[in-house]
Design a protein around this nucleic acid. Sequence first.
DNA 1: TAGTGGTCTAGACCACGGT
DNA 2: CCGTGGTCTAGACCACTAG
Lengths: 247, 247
Amino acid sequence: MPTPRHERIAEELRRAIDREEYAVGSRLPTEAELAARHDASRGTVRQALAALTAEGLIGSRQGARRVVLAGRRSQSFAELRSFAQWAQAMGRTATGRVVEQEYRPATAEDAARLHLAPGTPLLNVLRLRGLDGEPVLIERSVYADWISPTVASLDPECASVTQRLYEDTGLVFAHGEHVIDAVAAGARDAALLTVRRTSPLLRVRRVTTTHDGRPVEWSDDRYRPDAVSFTVHNSIANNALSRTTAG
Amino acid sequence: MPTPRHERIAEELRRAIDREEYAVGSRLPTEAELAARHDASRGTVRQALAALTAEGLIGSRQGARRVVLAGRRSQSFAELRSFAQWAQAMGRTATGRVVEQEYRPATAEDAARLHLAPGTPLLNVLRLRGLDGEPVLIERSVYADWISPTVASLDPECASVTQRLYEDTGLVFAHGEHVIDAVAAGARDAALLTVRRTSPLLRVRRVTTTHDGRPVEWSDDRYRPDAVSFTVHNSIANNALSRTTAG
DNA sequence: TAGTGGTCTAGACCACGGT
DNA sequence: CCGTGGTCTAGACCACTAG
């Protein structure tokens, strides 16, 4: 069987919302009606609706019809994880190159984030990435020791490391944790991103793990805030975002 | 009936994960075992596990046992929406005051975000908020016309506007959309937050709506990035975060 | 191959919202 | 009050993982 029933129902609803067949602020059909229309049980329909709720597209309350909250489609995880795929989905062209690549002993921070012993030699990669030729992102990535050799052997011009690693080794980047804040551009950041020194940059420090939670890599990504921002939807019943105090 | 069964099961699991009864990287009991242990059906257990998955605490794949991904509890939506409640949950004291408050005609941006006609008089409020006396956040909020008078009548020292509005009018802040980027501190930002001018600030522009998607307020919030950051968990099957190009 | 999660059904009752 | 979503059950079959 190709796609599960609930996924096809969800996709059908997303498209209907996209083409404003259900406008923002309007009410969706009832679960019973959707079930009848798709010849599925109510449970299956609810699974589809739960997905749209998690994406922030619709909202619900007991007793009242579901309501359309937003019209824009959100991105797939694959697009979020891979700069190249994301750019393509936005209709832009991803450019980029490896600026620097070398093995360094794991710092205390590396060790903590990747669950490794300090001093373990790890591959550090500095990449500059751009959209349509305009530099927008500096990525400073550190790879776990068990994957470092594979990454080191990749073509420096490789557009999507994520995809290459999956094709070559079956490795899946399954989960991510992103910590978002802001920093001033240092001298090197400024030169690479063609902004003034001390310009504000949007920083995302992220750790990517396999299905079982084993860390694969972590990265300090700095975006030009005039080119890229992040969006989070949430609801009373659904919050993926949290706010943290420093230290 | 006080709390639903699935919610109690989820809360029990969260606590067990918190006290490391199930350590990060370890496997959870099977659905069948959890069902037997809580005398519930498998469907109910799956509902509880879906909540933890959405929170980024656990991960799952067909065929394999569920795995613990993170140990920290995430925040409740109430804590995310209200600065005061959030501070309290973190064990800090929220301070704050209204710096400026006046009616202004809706700008084009106000009109677009709140779905109102340009020129409508709207309450604009500038608040400075702090943790333990240290200023960390500047909030520039604009309230929809139908709620502006109520907000204007509140005590300027009111700790939680969200909570007051609920108590006084039954208004629920049910959904939010947050767009996150970075900006340089202007002269006024710098003075209020006691940082240097051009310091990087973490900016969150958010729109809050009622259950049916009607916008209540929107706000430009600027955080000192050394004091506050944002965290997002996501997975292949679950992404609340999206990346957007400016313009 | 056995264990486990993913999908799906066909019902039931309850709690809440709007008319 | 009726319509609707929220909760819950008991079972079935399939797809995938792991030993």
